[in-house]
């Protein structure tokens, strides 16, 4: 277990190193680095001063080392627009994105698993076919368009739910969260549903495929021959088996939910780090873009690690560290 963790952390360190080289190359080497690091409005004298201060006249590898050094100490530059450290700006927005993504995942599981199991148990029934058609549609619908339709239907026409913003928040350890207030939840629901849409389709497909496979297994027939109730067979014997692929894929997809929140947050004006990224790109606020990237990379690494741990928790056959029973 410890060996596994150490090995994984070492791998992660390598990925971070590779990514920081890529980010450095991508943002700093392509285009003029000075454009990245100081405001475009700066005059010639300021530019020259900045070049000297930032050491942009030094050779490439020295520049990279100083970039990496700064990055390690959490200094990723200052936002041109907001005039505060970029990394702080991103982290400040992070809780909003995190709670949105988590609610979206919960929605995906709560809707997707029952529908997928249903479609898997009765693949030829009308309901099963409708569920599958719905999941193809869910894969095909562009997220941002669905978001707009949701706003049109539930906010504009029906007036049930607010169309934008985060609503009332409650501070937990100094971090504001929306999901603890009714008003906040109302604001969260549409964007979370929108963000969940694609994952619902994915979960339906995984659950259906898993159920179809598992339902044919001898252990399910044996469970029936033991006289177990259908609820127990589906809820324990089948569910626990299909949860393995679902949790794995969903875990890995969590990163993509965070990434796709860029779209949803733009549609619903949700003040998370996705919206921040788009705003920063459009305003050429590049230090913030860099900070966002590195935070996301770190996040992905943590997610992958957690997924692996969860996986071993769910499937007793997986031995961490690769040892076989």
């Amino acid at each position: 277990m410890l060996v596994f963790l150490i090995r994984r952390l070492a791998q992660s360190a390598i990925v971070i190193a590779v990514m920081s080289v890529l980010v450095f190359a991508g943002i700093f080497a392509i285009g003029n680095p000075i454009d990245v690091l100081i405001s475009p409005e700066a005059d010639e004298i300021e530019r020259a001063a900045a070049i000297a201060r930032l050491g942009l006249d030094r050779p490439m590898h020295e520049q990279f080392l100083s970039f990496a050094g700064n990055a390690l100490s959490g200094d990723l530059g200052t936002s041109f627009v907001h005039g505060v450290p970029a990394i702080g700006l991103v982290l400040e927005r992070f809780p909003a994105t995190l709670e949105l993504a988590l609610l979206a995942m919960i929605i995906a599981v709560v809707i997707g698993i029952p529908l997928g199991i249903w479609a898997g148990l009765k693949p030829d029934s009308a309901a099963g076919r409708i569920i599958m058609a719905g999941s193809i549609l869910g894969f095909s619908l562009p997220t941002f368009w669905v978001g707009m339709l949701l706003i049109m239907a539930f906010a504009v026409s029906l007036g049930w739910l607010p169309a934008s913003g985060r609503g009332a928040t409650v501070d937990v350890f100094g971090v504001p969260f929306s999901f603890l207030t009714l008003n906040g939840l109302k604001h969260m629901f549409l964007p979370a549903l929108n963000l969940a849409l694609f994952k619902v389709s994915l979960v339906i497909r995984l659950a259906r495929a898993g159920t179809r496979e598992v339902a044919l297994q001898d252990y399910v027939r044996f469970a029936r021959a033991k006289g177990l109730s259908p609820a127990r067979i589906v809820g324990v014997h089948i569910l626990k088996n299909i949860m393995i692929p679902v949790v794995t894929v969903l875990g890995l997809e969590f990163g993509s939910v965070i990434a796709f929140s860029v779209v949803t947050e733009s549609v619903f004006a949700w003040p998370g780090m996705g919206k921040l990224l788009i705003d920063s790109i459009l305003l050429l606020d590049r230090p913030v873009v860099v900070a966002y990237l590195l935070v996301t990379v770190l996040l992905f690494i943590v997610i992958n690690l957690v997924v692996d741990l969860l996986y071993s928790l769910l499937d007793p056959r997986i031995r961490l560290g690769g040892a076989k029973a």
């Binding site: 297994q217 001898d218 252990y219 027939r221 044996f222 469970a223 021959a225 014997h237 626990k240 088996n241 393995i244 769910l314 499937d315 007793p316 056959r317």
Partner: peptide, 11 residues
């Protein structure tokens, strides 16, 4: 059942 590898739920 026939195959003891398959009749017990692995998880």
């Amino acid at each position: 059942f026939q195959d003891p590898m398959m009749t017990l739920n692995p998880v």
